[in-house]
């Protein structure tokens, strides 16, 4: 029954990847903004949680709750002051600016805090396990899968059931017409980027307790986040979860064959999906 455990592991790993992807999905889906700094922001959030937890001597969950509003504010300001001026048909300007921003954040963390690997201590949860059917799974990865499902459910609910969600879908379909009927994109979009960084904080809490990270980890987080979003397609937040799980299972299956193939197997799965479905598993109806 080894393959059952491999798949279970892949699915829970996919939950973490879906958390990386969900925040990115939000900005890419609503405003076609390819935020190349998303990975760097996840690392930044992980460091904020780590510092808060050790300075205030509190648990990582409480630290994340304090960090989240700060990251929301950072995202809000980033969108308001910088990115809103660069949005348009051409994806290049925001892409270049966020690329620069990711380097600035990474260098800042390396210079300010050293390039050493760190980990957020999860406390007693570290060794906890649960039995799922025939397999024994550690609790921490399972919690990240639970968080991912929760985040996707919330995003879906907001998009489909609230006035804000309706306005966002309108902006996503046609920003010019949306602003004609009284929707104010600049402020709403600032909120979207803020929420996307709150999701990044949730991702950071899980990634930072599951494994070590360092300032340069942002690149690895970023490529996985993009792969998961693009495998899933931009039609539904469930796509981010599906994409994360495809990646996670591909990686654990690859690692089961040869540990060195873990990362490569994920990339091959991404390229294969793009070959068959260029717009992902759940593409948008238009655009």
């Amino acid at each position: 029954m080894i393959w059952v455990e491999t798949v279970m592991q892949g699915v829970t790993l996919g939950g973490l990847y879906a958390l990386f992807a969900a925040g990115l999905y939000l900005v890419l889906g609503v405003m076609r903004l390819a935020n190349l700094a998303h990975g760097a922001f996840i690392v930044l959030a992980a460091y904020v949680i780590l510092l808060l937890a050790s300075l205030l001597e509190i648990g990582p969950l409480l630290a994340a709750l304090i960090a989240a509003p700060a990251l929301f504010a950072a995202g809000w300001l980033l969108q308001r002051l910088l990115l809103n001026r660069l949005l348009g048909e051409d994806i290049l300007p925001p892409l270049l600016v966020t690329l620069g921003l990711s380097i600035v954040i990474q260098t800042g963390l390396e210079k300010g805090l050293s390039a050493q690997s760190r980990r957020i201590s999860p406390g007693p949860l570290e060794t906890a396990t649960v039995e799922v059917g025939p397999a024994v799974v550690s609790l921490l990865p399972l919690l990240s899968l639970g968080s991912a499902v929760l985040v996707v459910l919330v995003l879906q609910w907001v998009a489909l059931r609230t006035a804000t969600g309706r306005a966002l879908r309108a902006i996503s379909d046609d920003p010019a017409t949306a602003s004609m009927v009284g929707i104010s994109p600049p402020r709403l979009l600032a909120g979207v980027t803020g929420v996307s960084l709150v999701v990044a904080t949730i991702a950071a809490l899980h990634a930072g307790t599951l494994a070590e990270f360092q300032p340069a980890s942002g690149t690895a987080y970023l490529i996985i986040a993009f792969e998961a979003v693009l495998i899933g397609g931009l039609g539904s937040p469930w796509g981010a979860l599906a994409g994360g799980i495809v990646l996670g299972v591909a990686q654990t299956a690859g690692a089961a064959l040869d540990p060195e193939w873990e990362v490569l197997a994920g990339h091959v799965a991404f390229l294969a999906v793009l070959l068959v479905r260029p717009r992902g598993l759940f593409p948008r109806a238009s655009g």
Binding site: I91, I223, E227, V263, H267, L271, R279
Partner: peptide, 15 residues
């Protein structure tokens, strides 16, 4: 699409 192209070329290079 343009975003898929940018990320696709990156992933290809990593592979």
């Amino acid at each position: 699409g343009s975003v898929q192209f940018a990320i696709g070329t990156w992933v290809f290079a990593e592979a």
